[in-house]
Nucleic acid binder design. Structure first.
Length: 217
DNA sequence: TAGGCCATCTGGTCCT
DNA sequence: AGGACCAGATGGCCTA
C-alpha cells in the first residue's frame, strides 16, 4: 500500500460529503441541548439527596399523586420488571452507541484518509478532524490575507480562531491547537506511531510552507 | 503474551 | 416512569 504523496490527497467526496450529517431521531435538537456542560469534575454524582428530592426533588404534586394507585408487586414480578427494563435500557444504549459510531463514520467519510481502507480509530478521528479544521481555518486566513495584502499574516487573538483561547496562534511551528495539547493524550501519540497508517494530507496549496502534514495529528 | 481498540452491559444521574 | 447520557467493568479480537 503506497502512501499518497504529500499534497495529492483529495478529500473523499461521498454521498456523505454532499449531505450534512443527519442527526438521529434520538439526538438532541441542538448540540449541547443538555443544558450546561458537566462541571470539570463531571456531573455531581454524590448528590445523595437526589432520591429524597434534595437536589432537584420531584414536584410535590407528583409525589402526592403517587401511592394508592400501585399495588405492591411480588418479588418475582419486580424482578421480571427489572430485567425487562434493563434489557430495554441495554437496547437503547446499544442503539445510542451505534448512532455515535455512525456519526464517527460520517466524520471519517469527509476526512481525507489513505490508504482508503485505513480506518482511523475513534480518538484518531476526533483528533484529526479537530486539527484538520483548525489547519483549514488557518489556510483560509492565509488566502484571505494574501488576497488583500502580501504581508505574512499573524493570526490575531479573537477572530475565527478565537475559540482556541490561550493558544499561541502566531506560532506556526505549533500547529496543534491547545485542545490537542491538553490532557494526557499527547498529539504525538498519533498516526505517526502507527507504521501501517499514513497521515492524510490536505491539498498542498493550503498548507503553510513550513508545515509537514504529519503535524496534523 | 501484553497492550490497544472496541462492543456491550450495567448502575447512577439528570431530565421530561 | 421512562429515556438519555455517562463512566466503569468486562471480555473478545487483533497486532507487534
Amino acid at each position: 500500500m503506497a502512501p499518497h504523496p504529500l499534497g495529492t490527497a483529495t478529500c473523499q467526496v461521498t454521498s456523505e460529503t454532499q449531505q450534512p450529517f443527519a442527526a438521529g431521531a434520538s439526538d438532541h435538537p441542538a448540540l449541547g441541548a443538555r443544558s450546561a456542560p458537566p462541571s470539570p469534575t463531571g456531573r455531581p454524582r454524590d448528590c445523595a439527596e437526589a432520591e429524597e428530592g434534595g437536589c432537584r426533588g420531584a414536584p410535590r404534586k407528583l409525589r402526592a399523586r403517587r401511592g394508592g394507585r400501585h399495588r405492591p408487586k411480588s418479588e418475582l414480578a419486580l424482578s421480571k420488571q427489572r430485567r425487562s427494563r434493563r434489557k430495554k435500557a441495554n437496547d437503547r444504549e446499544r442503539n445510542r452507541m451505534h448512532n455515535l459510531n455512525s456519526a464517527l463514520d460520517a466524520l471519517r467519510g469527509v476526512l481525507p484518509t489513505f490508504p482508503d481502507d485505513a480506518k482511523l480509530t475513534k480518538i484518531e478521528t476526533l483528533r484529526f478532524a479537530h486539527n484538520y479544521i483548525w489547519a483549514l481555518t488557518q489556510a483560509l486566513r492565509i488566502a484571505d490575507h494574501s488576497f488583500y495584502g502580501p504581508e505574512v499574516p499573524v493570526p490575531p487573538r479573537g477572530g475565527a480562531l478565537g475559540s482556541f483561547e490561550g493558544g499561541s496562534l502566531g506560532d506556526w511551528g505549533s500547529l496543534y491547537s491547545p485542545v490537542s495539547h491538553a490532557g494526557s493524550l499527547s498529539p504525538t501519540t498519533s498516526l505517526e506511531e502507527c507504521p501501517g497508517r499514513q497521515v492524510p494530507s490536505p491539498p498542498a496549496c493550503l498548507l503553510p510552507g513550513a508545515l509537514a502534514f504529519s503535524d496534523f495529528l
